[in-house]
Measured scan of single mutants.
Amino acid sequence: VNVKKLKVSELKEELKKRRLSDKGLKAELMERLQAALDDEE
């Protein structure tokens, strides 16, 4: 998943799939999702 190419709605969906908070600004969502993806690898 390329975090930078996702829309806010898509970021929120990806975060929900991982049971993460989907609250906050786009930058925060991107950071949170990227951290989750880094952990998965």
Rank of each mutant, 00 (worst) to 15 (best):
V1Q: 05
V1M: 13
V1G: 04
V1T: 08
V1R: 07
N2C: 09
N2E: 11
N2T: 12
N2R: 08
N2P: 07
N2Q: 10
N2G: 08
N2S: 08
V3T: 08
V3Q: 03
V3D: 06
V3K: 03
V3S: 03
V3I: 07
V3C: 10
V3L: 10
V3R: 02
K4C: 14
K4S: 13
K4G: 14
K4M: 14
K5Q: 11
K5F: 09
K5A: 13
K5L: 11
K5C: 11
K5T: 12
K5M: 12
L6P: 01
L6Q: 03
L6E: 02
L6C: 00
K7T: 14
K7D: 13
K7Q: 03
K7M: 11
K7A: 14
K7S: 15
V8R: 07
V8Y: 05
V8E: 15
V8S: 11
V8N: 01
S9I: 12
S9G: 11
S9Q: 10
S9T: 11
S9W: 12
S9Y: 09
E10S: 05
E10T: 08
E10N: 09
E10D: 10
E10A: 07
E10H: 04
E10P: 00
L11W: 00
L11S: 04
L11P: 01
L11D: 04
L11C: 00
L11A: 03
L11F: 01
L11Q: 02
K12F: 00
K12S: 06
K12G: 10
K12T: 00
E13I: 14
E13M: 10
E13T: 08
E13N: 02
E13K: 03
E13D: 07
E13C: 00
E13V: 09
E14I: 01
E14L: 07
E14M: 09
E14R: 01
E14W: 02
E14A: 07
L15N: 00
L15S: 00
L15C: 01
L15E: 03
L15M: 01
L15T: 01
K16T: 13
K16H: 09
K16P: 01
K16F: 05
K16M: 12
K16S: 10
K16D: 12
K17C: 07
K17S: 10
K17I: 03
K17L: 10
K17N: 07
K17W: 02
K17H: 07
R18L: 06
R18A: 03
R18K: 04
R19K: 12
R19I: 02
R19F: 03
R19D: 14
R19H: 13
L20K: 08
L20S: 03
L20M: 10
L20N: 04
L20P: 00
L20I: 15
S21A: 06
S21F: 01
S21V: 05
S21R: 03
S21Q: 05
S21T: 08
S21G: 05
S21W: 02
S21E: 09
D22Y: 06
D22G: 08
D22W: 07
D22C: 13
K23S: 15
K23L: 14
K23D: 14
K23C: 14
K23Q: 15
K23V: 14
K23I: 12
K23W: 11
K23E: 15
K23R: 14
G24W: 00
G24P: 02
G24H: 02
G24E: 01
G24T: 00
G24D: 02
G24M: 00
G24S: 01
L25C: 15
L25I: 10
L25F: 07
L25T: 13
L25Y: 09
L25S: 15
K26V: 13
K26C: 08
K26D: 13
K26L: 11
K26M: 14
A27N: 12
A27C: 09
A27P: 14
A27W: 06
A27L: 11
A27M: 12
E28P: 02
E28A: 10
E28N: 09
E28Q: 11
E28M: 04
E28V: 09
L29D: 09
L29C: 05
L29R: 08
L29W: 01
L29S: 10
L29T: 11
M30I: 04
M30H: 02
M30T: 05
M30V: 05
M30R: 06
E31I: 06
E31N: 15
E31V: 08
E31R: 06
L33R: 06
L33C: 02
L33A: 05
L33S: 07
L33D: 04
Q34L: 06
Q34W: 04
Q34E: 10
Q34C: 04
Q34H: 07
Q34T: 08
A35P: 05
A35L: 14
A35T: 14
A35R: 13
A35Q: 14
A35C: 09
A35S: 12
A35K: 09
A36L: 01
A36M: 03
A36K: 06
A36W: 04
A36S: 04
A36N: 08
L37P: 09
L37V: 15
L37F: 10
L37W: 08
L37T: 09
L37Q: 08
L37M: 03
D38V: 09
D38P: 05
D39I: 07
D39K: 12
D39T: 13
D39E: 14
D39G: 12
E40M: 03
E41T: 15
E41A: 14
E41M: 13
E41W: 12
E41R: 15
E41P: 12
E41G: 15
E41L: 06
E41Q: 14
